[in-house]
Write a protein that binds this DNA or RNA. Structure first.
Length: 470
RNA sequence: GGCGGCGUACCCAAGUGGUUAAGGGAGAGGUCUGCAAAACCUCGAUGCGGCGGUUCGAAUCCGCCCGCCGCCUCCA
């Protein structure tokens, strides 16, 4: 049993063997901080969060780096529009990003380098490229010379001729080859700029990831990830720069997540169909969004919809309900060894290119089995199976809090919106219980209907009446 | 124009050569319950966009066709 990962570089699932035994070095392209993050970002973040969690589950030490692109045309433009500095824009959206990540329950990378903190390193890489004849200057700009790098196109499986034939890029006459790209740009007035061997300017987009990944992870390193859209040109160019500069392989395994669509269309600002993470999390628990995203395989396109979110919410409630039931069983002292076979099956599915839909299916099969045991009062093996279920749910990041807290949050939020107090509800429940004990069913049902009007559902359990939100 | 992907039940979504095509949601029937709710049980695609082909055997491989999408330009 071993981990297999689909490697964009080879176009096939491969056995994953890290460079150093027991240790994985992973770099994931982060965000350009010029606006709020949307569910597309959430998918990328969650995909690599789960990949990270599975690597940890397998017992690897993981060194995880995710960058911030805080230097970019869009940031500069935004700053101009708002009459502020690029730095202020970047800072604001880094903060927003950190809030989103915390709300999503993501693990924190070991390093989150910012491009602007690594100008020196980028300049060093560009100098190396110049020395090797892979870069050339035009006035204050420096370009990478794609046809001097033999492997250009190997990640996106494109040939330079094909790119040339179909390119719709604006032709920059100063470039030797149409696909040459900027390593360093001469700064225009009012733009952020740094001193360099080529005069005042700023780095091109791709060079930051080459410089920062190598700084924190060395070269080569094990996993490089990001959204599908980054395959070309971003990652292709990173490879060209890094392998060109250092003469050794850059990243060994490339992982790319699929896109989020809205009604079969790409989510984009121009189409006006963007859901921000914040908007979704105002309406649903983070586990709901996570569950929704993980029920599709990470490489498939995912169609985002309100109906999908609502369904995911029911699934997540089911998980928490079951864990809640299980948690009422005795809690033995000391560690319980997870049992029942779930862990092995879970591992097998996740080892197959992170098949989270299958992993979730297994979890629900176990949930059904455990609920049945609880219904029938069978307890043999239940404690260890509970431990296994929780381990799996935690490893997927779907179970990050106690059921009480999960349901409590929803109740509190509902009460706040409805302007109700929990006391008033408890009171009604008390009255109903009294009516029930006196077999005044009409009165009891009237109170239940009254609460239902307010979106509150009652459950009469052997341990008393509990209430839930809708 | 080049490259790549997708089309599985009412909806979402696994499965990529071999017993009865996962799982979830919705729906129907049932158990439990004063009645409910939750949970559990049962049912649900003789068929995997269409047509051919390869094979003892295909949702799964090949060809063609139809429909949809992405990348080639900033983009998760």
């Amino acid at each position: 049993m071993s981990l297999k990962i689909y490697n964009t570089l080879s176009g096939a699932k491969e056995d994953f063997v890290p460079l150093k035994k027991g240790e994985v070095r992973m770099y994931v392209c982060g965000v350009t901080v010029y606006d709020r993050c949307h569910v597309g970002h959430a998918r990328a973040l969650l995909t690599f969060d789960v990949i990270y969690r599975h690597l940890i589950f397998l017992g690897y030490r993981v060194l995880f780096v995710r960058n911030f692109t805080d230097l970019d045309d869009k940031i500069i433009q935004r700053a101009r529009e708002e009459g502020t500095s690029a730095e202020a824009i970047a800072d604001r959206y880094i903060q927003e990003f950190n809030q989103d990540c915390a709300a999503l329950g993501l693990v924190t990378p070991d390093h989150e380098p910012k491009a602007t903190d690594h100008i020196r390193e980028m300049i060093d890489v560009i100098c190396r490229l110049e020395e090797k004849g892979l870069a050339y200057r035009v006035n204050g700009d420096v370009f990478f010379s794609v046809d001097r790098f033999a492997g250009y196109g190997k990640l996106s499986r494109r040939k330079l001729e094909e790119l040339q034939a179909g390119a719709r890029v604006e032709i920059d006459e100063r470039k030797r080859h149409l696909m040459d790209f900027a390593l360093w740009k001469q700064s225009k007035p009012g733009e952020p700029s740094w001193e360099s061997p080529w005069g005042k300017g700023r780095p091109g987009w791709h060079i930051e990831c080459s410089a920062m990944s190598t700084k924190y992870l060395g070269q080569p390193f094990d996993i490089h990830g990001g959204g599908r859209d980054l395959v070309f040109p971003h990652h292709e160019n990173e490879i060209a720069q890094s392998e060109g500069a250092f003469g050794v392989m850059f990243a060994r395994c490339w992982i790319h997540n699929g896109f989020v669509n809205i009604n079969q269309e790409k989510m984009s600002k121009s189409l006006g169909n963007v859901y921000t993470i914040n908007e979704v999390l105002n309406r649903y628990d983070a586990a709901v969004l996570r569950h929704y995203i993980l029920t599709s395989h990470y490489r498939s396109p995912l169609d985002f919809s309100d109906q999908g979110l609502a369904e995911a919410e029911k699934c997540v409630e089911r998980i928490y309900e079951t864990v809640d039931r299980l948690d009422r069983l005795p809690q033995p002292n000391g560690r319980v060894k997870p049992g029942g076979g779930l862990l092995e099956e879970y591992c097998r599915e996740m080892d197959d290119d992170f098949n989270t839909p299958r992993a979730i299916a297994l979890m629900f099969e176990e949930i059904r089995a455990l609920n049945r045991m609880l219904d029938e009062g069978k307890t043999e093996g239940l404690i260890s199976r509970r431990a296994a279920l929780k381990t799996v749910a935690e490893s997927l990041g779907l179970l990050q809090e106690e059921p009480n807290k999960f349901f409590g949050k929803r109740k509190a939020e509902w009460l706040r919106r409805q302007g109700l107090s929990s006391e008033s509800i408890e009171q009604l429940i008390c009255r109903r219980d009294r009516a029930r004990s006196e077999k005044q069913w009409q009165e009891a049902d009237r109170i239940r209907a009254e609460l239902k009007e307010k979106g509150i559902i009652l459950e009469d359990t052997p341990g008393g009446t509990v209430w839930k939100v809708k």
